[in-house]
Design a protein around this nucleic acid. Structure first.
Lengths: 190, 190
DNA sequence: CATCATATAGAACTATCGTTCAATATGAAA
DNA sequence: TTTCATATTGAACGATAGTTCTATATGATG
C-alpha cells in the first residue's frame, strides 16, 4: 500500500484552493517529500491511475477522476474512520448534474415561489435549454420578458404555470407559453 | 480601449476546458499574439485588474474575478437574449461548492425531516468533516450509530438537534452530541 | 531474518519558460 | 495631421523547471 492517496488528497486541496499546481519542488514540500525525482515518479503513478495528465509541455492537468468525491451511505455511520474507504463510491458532481454542457445554463432562483419544491431564494438551478418538458416538470418559462421557474401543468388541454407556494397565483399564458428550458437539477451553498 | 477582455475570454475558455493555463508561447498562439513579451505585458495588466495572480514561481493563478463573469453572465446575459449563447463553458459547480476535498464527503438525504430547509429526500448534501459548527447551522450528527442531518441548536447551554419539519421531534443527546460535520451545500438532480 | 519490489533521495543535465528592453505598431485625442 | 500613450514585436538572456539515473530507504512477504 503506497501513500499516493494521501498525496492525491493534498494535491486536491491545493488545487481546489488555488486553481493551479505548484512546481515539483513545491509539490515535494506540500506532500512532505525531499526530492523532485520522487514527485516525478508519483505524478506518473497518479497519471497512470487516471487522476492527472501530463501535457507535452510538461504541465500537470487534472483529469475527471481528480474531481471525484466520496458518496457516503448512512449505513456507514458506525464504521470507524478506516483508511480504506472502499464503501464510498466515487462521484463527480459536475458530471452527475450536467451532461450536455453546451445546452446547459445556470439560473439563480429569486423569491420563494417554488419553496415547496425545495427551491429556496439563492439556489441555482441547472437548466437544459430546449429540452422537452412534460406536465409536472419544473421548467423555466419566459413570461413578460422575464424568466420564471415554475411547474408546468395542463388543464383542458391548455398549459399553465404553477408555483410551489400557495401564496402565489397560477400563471396562464395569453396565447402562447414560451418555455425556455427544463430544470434538471439545482444546487445551493451555505 | 484594449483587447484585454477578449484575451481574458479566451483564457477563461481554455482554463474551463483544461484546468490549466498554457505557457506564454501557447497563450500567444491562443489569443493571436506573436510574441511572449506581449503576453507578459498582458498578463500583468490582467493581474493588475484582479483577474489573475502571478505567483513567485511565475505561475498564473486565477483569481476570484476570473470566475465571476461566468456565474454572472449565465444568470444575466441569458435574460435579454434567448439564442445567442456561444459563451460556452459552465464554471465548475464542484469548484464552487467544495474547497477542501480531502475533508469533504457527500451524503444522501433520507426522509423529509429537513424539508422546510429545502432538503428533500434524495438530495445530496456536501459535508465538511470536523468543521466548526455554530448554532443555527445545518450539521450531520451521529445519533445511535446513524447519520442525521439537522439544525444545530442550543437551549440552556445544551446543544440539541432540530428538524426542519414539525412532524418530527427535537433530538436531545443523552450525554454527548457527536457531530460528524458541517453541511456546506447541497445539490439535487431531477 | 533475507529477499524482492517499489518508493524516495540527491545531484547533474537540458529544455524551455518568462523576463527584459529597444524598436515598431496601434490608436485615441487634440 | 501631429502628438502622445499604450500595445506588440522580436531577440537575447538568465533562471528554473522537470527529467533522468544511481544509490539508498522502505516495506511487504516468505
Amino acid at each position: 500500500m503506497n501513500k499516493d492517496h494521501l498525496y492525491l488528497a493534498k494535491l486536491r486541496d491545493y488545487y481546489a484552493n488555488t486553481g493551479v499546481f505548484p512546481p515539483y519542488s513545491g509539490i515535494a514540500k506540500l506532500i512532505g517529500m525531499r526530492s523532485k525525482g520522487g514527485v516525478s515518479a508519483m505524478v506518473k503513478r497518479l497519471a497512470n491511475a487516471g487522476y492527472l495528465d501530463v501535457t507535452s509541455d510538461r504541465r500537470i492537468k487534472p483529469q475527471k477522476s481528480f474531481f471525484e468525491r466520496e458518496l457516503f451511505d448512512y449505513v456507514q455511520a458506525e464504521l470507524p474512520q478506516s483508511a480504506n474507504d472502499t464503501l464510498a463510491e466515487p462521484y463527480s458532481i459536475d458530471e452527475y448534474l450536467i451532461n450536455t454542457p453546451s445546452r446547459t445554463v445556470l439560473l439563480t432562483i429569486k423569491g420563494d415561489s417554488m419553496i415547496d419544491a425545495g427551491l429556496m431564494p439563492g439556489d441555482v438551478v441547472i437548466v437544459k435549454k430546449g429540452a422537452p418538458a412534460k406536465v409536472g416538470n419544473i421548467i423555466v418559462a419566459i413570461v413578460d420578458g422575464e424568466y420564471t421557474v415554475k411547474y408546468l401543468e395542463a388543464r383542458d388541454g391548455q398549459y399553465y404555470l404553477r408555483p410551489a407556494n400557495k401564496a402565489y397565483p397560477e400563471i396562464y399564458a395569453r396565447d402562447h407559453l414560451e418555455i425556455f428550458g427544463l430544470v434538471v437539477g439545482s444546487f445551493r451553498k451555505y
